[in-house]
Design a protein around this nucleic acid. Structure first.
Lengths: 248, 248
DNA sequence: CCAAAAGTGTTCAAAGTACACCCATGA
DNA sequence: TCATGGGTGTACTTTGAACACTTTTGG
């Protein structure tokens, strides 16, 4: 940082791309758009867009998330009222990684900062703005169908999500504000693609300090015995962690 | 990615910054440079530099690492011979995170992709190129002495390193190619700032599949009983993981 | 009644913890 | 000889895994 004049140095374009995951119909789903312009016309891609000047990376990711899904994290006010934007405090958004291979965009050198978002089940994406062509697809097995290097980014996002279920209470981000132990177990089973013993799972999550906070409410009207409803607790890491069984 | 003309869109400058950690004199140390230009003239900062056009992020990080430390990962050939560059296959380099708050550089919008490097004990940084002013500092307790947002980046790097010692064989990156169980234990103790029971540590690391590969060699000339020498094994994750005891 | 999901108890195996003890070298 | 670090054995505790069993609802 002394050899080059920064103001003269060839700059790159910076974008954010979102890996938005949710659970729909018993399956892990990712939000994709059908591209309407070259390159990769008509191919599926992760939603995303350019980072504006005077906008932080996180703010850009929040803005794209709002534009694509109507979800508002409720943290930052950008001056404008949030007409029609649903609040969803429990949506989780974190930075995933950055990708900047030359040639990943044939037009110019684009460095993209990928973000991972986990959300409870959402209605079909709202029409309007960029989201008109966005919809949900099964997250696994998309192979190389995605534009740019988005297949790689999606794979990294899935891996991150699977890993963080082990040692953080992140699975709750896929659940509504109040949820049962059974719903939570389903999240683990779907994301990990395994089955878990309901009895041991129950004991484990209710016994891990800070994972769950009882609400005192119970479900009613389902079949089977009514279940306790919980909210997410205040822990950021789980100890001891949940385990994807040693022998996979 | 349809609302803006990418070729016209205001671009940002992209840099890589390195958090290079090693162990020196029983302490965790980070490589810092004394800035010779404004802004933050004469302040300490992480080494780094601009990503060149047609260069991937990882390649830029490797290049900066080579320029600052003389270490060559030996993976990528950039056409030029590596005159004088020491090979160090066991140096570890991974992407850490990206930082792009507006105003983090007062000159223009700079997005930096931080990388984390772990290296065995190195001689004092070699003179030449950018590294003339680079030297090692104790990694903890630098507080807000660093330029830009580098204090935050360093903190994130330390946290990543501490966490990855738990579930990966990364501690071996701080050791020479062949090392003893005692040396490895010292790495854990220094990075975590704890003490570990030598007997149980020995049993644990030698019993974890893929962590260590025996060489058949032993140390000699030290005081105490000669120790077996090991190389890093072939596992990428440790199961079961090493534990920073539940009660810190 | 039965089916289904919630939740508890019990038993066994695996892993972590504490620490006594022996081994092989240098001084 | 002692000091020093390497390495093993063993007893105890904690955690996980398997699964029998009870509870509470809907049909």
């Amino acid at each position: 940082m002394g050899k080059y004049d920064p103001l003269a140095y060839p700059a790159a374009a910076v974008t954010v791309d979102l890996v938005v995951l949710t659970i729909r119909q018993g399956d892990l789903a990712v939000l994709l758009i059908r591209r309407g312009v070259e390159p990769y016309l008509a191919r599926l891609a992760l939603p995303g867009g350019f980072v504006r000047p005077d906008e932080s990376l996180g703010a850009a990711a929040e803005r794209e998330l709002r534009e694509e899904t109507g979800l508002d994290l409720g943290r930052s006010q950008h001056g404008r009222g949030q007409q029609g934007a649903r609040r969803a405090e429990q949506v989780h958004l974190e930075q995933l990684a950055s990708y900047g291979d030359p040639g990943r965009d044939p037009r110019l050198h684009v460095v993209t900062v990928a973000y991972l978002a986990l959300a409870p089940q959402l209605p079909a994406p709202q029409a309007g703005s960029d989201a008109a062509t966005a919809s949900w697809f099964p997250a696994e097995g998309l192979g190389e169908k995605l534009a740019f290097d988005h297949g790689r980014i999606l794979a990294d996002g899935l891996e991150r999500a699977k890993a963080k279920l082990e040692y953080t209470p992140l699975a709750t981000a896929f659940c509504p504000a109040e949820f049962t132990v059974g719903q939570l177990r389903l999240v683990y089973e779907i994301v990990w693609g395994t089955t878990l013993d309901p009895r041991n799972f129950h004991r484990k999550v209710t016994g891990t300090r800070g994972f769950l906070a009882p609400t005192g409410h119970t479900t009613e009207g389902d079949r089977g015995r009514p279940a306790q409803l919980y909210r997410r607790g205040d822990a950021d890491v789980l100890f001891p962690p949940m385990l994807r069984s040693a022998v996979s």
